[in-house]
Structures are given as C-alpha cells and as structure tokens.
Write a protein that binds this DNA or RNA. Structure first.
Lengths: 168, 168
DNA sequence: TATGAAACCGTTTCTCT
DNA sequence: AGAGAAACGGTTTCATA
C-alpha cells in the first residue's frame, strides 16, 4: 500500500458515492488503474464495507449514552454469556472489553429516556455488576467514521483532500 | 417515512454497495420507485452520507481508547477553546459533551502506545483538567454504524433482512 | 405512487504501452 | 503498473397507468 492507495482511502472514507473517474482524477490516475487499486483494497480487506450513515434524530433516536460496566467477580462462563447477550441487544452500537478501572464500555442509542431505562434494567439484570456508569450525550462535538490516515505508519503528512476542480 | 423506507434504510446501513434493483427486490418494489425513495431520503438528510469503513489494524492503528475528561473549574471561553482544539485533533474520532460525573467522552485511535502517550500529553496540556481516565480497548466485541431501526418510533418489530435469493 | 422501456453514464474488461 | 477504447450493466428519465 503506497501513498496513492492512502489517498484513495482518504477519499472513500469521506464519500463513497464518488465515481471511480472522479477519484482517479483526484489522485492523478485514469479510471482503470484507480479501479484496480480499489478492487485490491476491497479484496485485501482494507476496505471492510460501504455503508450509509443516517441522522439519528431524523429516524427518532433522541438518546445516546456511553455506559461503563465493572463486572462482579464471576466465572468465565457467566461473563461470556453476558458478552453474547449484550452483543445481541440492538441498542448497543459499540461494545468493547477494556483495560482500566472498568471492564466494558458500551455506546448505546435509544428513542428516549424511558427506553433507556428499560435498556438499563435489561442490561443490569443479565449478571450482577459491581458498578455501572451512564454518561448521556448532551452535545455531539465530533463524530467520525474515517480513520486519520495522515497519522498511519508510512504516511507523509498531507493536506486535507481538495475537491477536484470543477473546471478540470 | 413508512415501513418501506425503513426497510431500504436498514439495507443501506448494512451495505451501500447494493444496486437499486437489488434493494428494490428486497423491499418488493421495482427499481424506479425504490430509486425515488432513496433520492428523497438523501435529500431530506435522513441518509447523511455514504462512506467506506476501513479495518483499523490493516492501516496500522493498533490502539483505540475511550477517554473521559472532567474539566477543571474554568470559564466558558477556556472550555470553548478546549473543544475547538480537541475537535481538530485527528486521533479523536468521537467527542461528546456528556452529563454525569465526567464532562467529555472521547474515542481515540493511535498507531501504538507511544503515540497515545504523545496524544495524551497534548490533550492534557490544552487546559488544566480535574481528572482524565483512559480505557484501552482489549477486544472489540461489537462495532456498528447502523442504527437499530427496528426500535425506531413507528417501526413494527421486524426480522433481520434476508439476502435477496440468488435464484431470483 | 408504481411500472416498464429507453437513454445515459459509470464500471469493468480488454488491448496496448 | 498505467492508459484508452469498447462492452456491459446500473442509474436515471420518460411515458403510462
């Protein structure tokens, strides 16, 4: 993966609806080699998928929360069952095991506070937990799905991507 | 927005590389009306954008962390400058003001621990902070960009989307 | 608001450098 | 590896119900 591949990825992370010809123009390549590079990036799993990002408020989700969980002192099997159950909860978008003074972090969306309370009740009844903290989002200050490729190993620091000039 | 629109959105959130004809087939519509609905969902801002999702490890990001920040007792202007500075830090993917015993939550990616230390030093020198907690991700248990539309107001509970049958 | 046919344009393949 | 031309297929428009 070279600098041109990284440029392509930076563009596709920002807007995957551009045509191959437009992307090629932006990275200084004609459509065929640009298309071949994209195919390779998809085949090798660097590009995992292409998705549509929705506006949570426009589909009725008013609450998003960060939840930290400290597990009680339970056996491996209990914790594994907990993990499977949490993974299956649709309101959980992100779920990770972490190192620190908590064991798990979750990012949760719900329609409103009563729905969150219902979620919370279901979560805490899965297994006895030592501590659970919920942080409700008051203001979304930044939300990115794009990885900062300018910081990736091998990247020369680059300026942000300019739109391809309309006049060519 | 009706049940068909929600079906379309559920599909597009999962895989935005499907053709309009395929999506139409999955929701029981021919391509033209399906295409019109997608256009409307884009125009109204329900669909914010289409993006490529990359594999962090394949581009060299080995560390992702959740960082909680409790602000010191500072004036509005100091905090606003802090917010602007954090928004500009490329390693910060998510950044929100929250209610609870911390003030801000961040989701951060870096190449490795030394790079995280560098980030941490820059973050903590922006403004005196009362407390900063970092939780390093040990295991990604779930990672979704798709909102759980089955829980959205107005949604009848629906089964997961089946792939359109290969044979037609 | 849905459909099918047709026009248009982007993607994919092929050939050549 | 990259370029350009051609074939293919998906998108977008149009006419119609």
């Amino acid at each position: 993966m070279d600098a041109v591949d990284r440029k392509i990825l930076r563009i596709l992370q920002q807007d995957a609806s551009l045509t191959v010809a437009e992307i090629g123009r932006a990275v200084g390549l004609s459509t065929t080699p640009c298309w071949k590079r994209i195919q390779k990036l998809e085949a090798s799993g660097v590009i995992r998928k292409r998705v549509a990002i929705l506006a949570p408020d426009k589909v009725g989700f008013g609450v998003t929360a960060q939840v930290s969980v400290q597990a009680g002192d339970h056996g491996r099997e209990t914790v594994e069952a907990f993990i499977v159950a949490v993974q299956a909860m649709p309101e959980v978008l992100e779920f990770q095991r972490v190192a620190g003074d908590v064991d798990f972090c979750l990012r949760v969306v719900t329609v409103d506070i009563p729905h969150f309370e219902d979620f919370y009740r279901r979560l805490t009844s899965l297994m006895p937990l030592r501590r659970v903290s919920s942080y409700f989002e008051l203001q979304q200050l930044k939300s990115e799905t794009a990885l900062p490729l300018a910081l990736a190993p091998g990247a020369r620091l680059q300026a942000p991507i300019a739109d391809p000039a309309p006049g060519g």
